[in-house]
Computed example of a mutant assay.
Amino acid sequence: MTLERIALISDVHGNLTALEAVLADIEARGITRIFNLGDYVGKGPRGREVTELCKTRCEVNILGNWDDFLPDPEREYDNEAMRWWKEQAGEENGRWLRSLPFSHDFLISGRRVRLFHASEETVHRRVRFDHDEGEFVGLFRNTDATGFDSPEPDIVGYADTHDPYYETDRGRRTVFNTGSVGNCMSDPTPVYVILDGVMDSDQEAPFGIQWVRVPYDTEAEIAYATSVEMPEVDAYAYELRTGFYRANLKHDEQPTYHRKG
Rank of each mutant, 00 (worst) to 15 (best):
D132G: 13
E87K: 14
I26Q: 12
F116A: 06
D78V: 14
S227F: 10
V60P: 01
R111N: 09
D39I: 13
E49L: 03
F244D: 05
D105A: 04
R141M: 04
P71E: 05
R141A: 12
Y165R: 03
E229A: 13
R33W: 04
Y238I: 15
A223H: 04
G42P: 07
Y77F: 15
F102A: 13
E239F: 12
R29L: 02
D72Q: 06
R29D: 01
G261S: 14
A223E: 10
S10A: 15
F116L: 05
L63D: 04
R246W: 14
G42T: 13
I155W: 05
D11R: 05
R46I: 12
R213A: 00
T17Y: 14
R95Y: 08
F176D: 00
I6T: 02
E204A: 08
D11W: 02
E4Q: 15
P255L: 14
A225T: 06
A145Y: 14
N36I: 03
F136P: 00
I62S: 01
L139V: 11
D105N: 13
E152K: 08
Y40K: 11
L249Q: 00
L249P: 00
E229T: 13
L195Q: 01
Y216S: 01
H104K: 14
G38L: 09
S10W: 08
T17F: 13
T143V: 03
A24M: 10
G134W: 14
G134R: 10
R170H: 01
L53F: 02
G197K: 09
Q88V: 08
Y236S: 04
Q88M: 03
R126S: 10
G94H: 12
E221M: 13
S103P: 02
A225H: 01
R75K: 14
S186D: 11
E204Q: 08
H124G: 05
E74F: 06
T168S: 05
F69V: 11
D149L: 01
M199S: 05
N79E: 12
Y165D: 00
F35Y: 15
G197R: 09
D144E: 11
F129Y: 02
N36M: 03
A18I: 10
I6P: 01
V22R: 11
K55D: 03
R57C: 00
Y165W: 15
T242R: 03
E59T: 09
A237P: 00
T174M: 11
E76I: 10
R57I: 04
A21P: 02
L37C: 07
R141Y: 08
L100C: 10
C184K: 15
P153C: 04
D149I: 00
D67Q: 06
G208I: 12
Q210M: 08
E52K: 07
H117M: 13
E120S: 13
D200P: 01
V113L: 15
E76G: 07
E221V: 11
I62E: 05
V214F: 08
I108R: 11
S180G: 09
L97D: 05
V60Q: 13
Y40W: 07
R33S: 06
R57G: 06
P215G: 03
I9H: 02
D217E: 06
W85M: 04
A18T: 08
